[in-house]
Amino acid sequence: MPSILAPRARRRRLIGARTISTTGSVTVHVGFVGLGAMGRGMARQLLSAGHTLTVWNRSPEPVEALVADGAGRADSPADAFACDAVVSMLADDRAVADLLLHDELLAAATAAVHVNMATVSPDLARRAAELHARHGVGYLAAPVLGRSDVAAAGRLNILAAGSTSDLDLAAPLFEAMGQRTWHLGDRPEAANVAKICTNFMLTSAIEAFSEATALAEANGIPATDLLDVVTNTVFPGPVYSGYGALIAERRYEPAGFRLALGLKDVTLALDTATASDVALPFAEVLRESLRHAIADGRADHDLAALAETARARKA
């Protein structure tokens, strides 16, 4: 059986990285690191698509659930990097750096490519790409658009950047996890910049709807009526309809996207702007709103809980 893996300098790669199933689909042995709310659904989609899966997570419960469904258990991230490809979905720069950016780990890896699907800084993406290249391991940045329910349904939009050969290797995995992959060039950090920009706009929209809801309610207009008007006229689409419904119903748990992660992403936008000599004045406003919401004990509530900060704010 021909291998999916193109030759790579000084690479010690497995020959059987790709097999063709009886249905004609491509299957890959994938290591998966990070089984949080998003990662669980993404890993399950890979398993459902017929890929061989080996999973690692700091807490054991998500691992046990996937092992019960046919995944293999990795005792360490190094075991995941002994597969043909690795997908990671970790919380932030620190988690990625602490767990995965080590010379020893990458020197021993047999994986052809590491697909980092977390929302991380452009600087981390650059450092990760350089370190992986030093050890002959491909590196792709592929952050995603979509909440945990979208991940569980395999309907994510994937923002991917890296070499064409690495993108080709990851294509069967993207097909399992997402509805569309957007190729953003050969620099991995480009995908992270695009994701940071998108999350900044998303959080801005939620803050705008939150403030508008507070104004409407103060004047006797139910949030549900405002939501009906807005989503059927000037702002149709999933952001206002989805987050607007959560705001109107004051339904913030279980969180599809936590406020604490929203603060992380807006901070990433501000840090990236500083490095790019770009001013983002509204991002400063957003960061303060997020900080107030978290100070009120809402760190683990859905991002839509920004509305409660807006409702409580007085002139």
Score class of each variant (00 low, 15 high):
residue 130 E to C: 07
residue 123 D to V: 12
residue 58 R to K: 09
residue 61 E to N: 11
residue 158 I to T: 08
residue 140 L to M: 04
residue 80 A to M: 10
residue 197 C to L: 14
residue 167 L to M: 15
residue 103 D to E: 15
residue 179 Q to L: 13
residue 112 A to W: 02
residue 161 A to P: 04
residue 241 S to E: 13
residue 18 R to E: 14
residue 264 K to L: 00
residue 49 A to Y: 01
residue 140 L to I: 10
residue 122 P to D: 00
residue 239 V to N: 00
residue 4 I to L: 13
residue 194 A to C: 15
residue 123 D to C: 00
residue 23 T to V: 11
residue 127 R to V: 05
residue 282 F to P: 05
residue 4 I to K: 05
residue 19 T to E: 15
residue 61 E to G: 10
residue 146 G to E: 06
residue 127 R to L: 09
residue 218 A to P: 00
residue 245 A to G: 13
residue 292 H to Q: 14
residue 310 A to G: 08
residue 208 A to W: 10
residue 284 E to H: 15
residue 59 S to M: 09
residue 210 S to F: 09
residue 78 A to T: 09
residue 302 D to R: 02
residue 236 P to H: 00
residue 99 L to D: 09
residue 127 R to A: 13
residue 142 A to I: 01
residue 213 T to N: 09
residue 123 D to I: 02
residue 144 V to G: 07
residue 55 V to G: 08
residue 19 T to I: 12
residue 185 G to D: 05
residue 281 P to I: 11
residue 90 L to E: 03
residue 139 Y to H: 11
residue 112 A to C: 01
residue 22 T to I: 07
residue 248 A to D: 03
residue 304 A to V: 07
residue 1 M to G: 15
residue 115 V to D: 00
residue 200 F to G: 04
residue 80 A to D: 07
residue 239 V to E: 01
residue 243 Y to W: 06
residue 51 H to E: 07
residue 297 G to V: 08
residue 23 T to I: 07
residue 51 H to Q: 06
residue 304 A to S: 14
residue 204 S to H: 10
residue 152 A to T: 04
residue 133 A to D: 12
residue 3 S to A: 12
residue 140 L to V: 03
residue 67 V to I: 11
residue 246 L to Q: 12
residue 50 G to R: 01
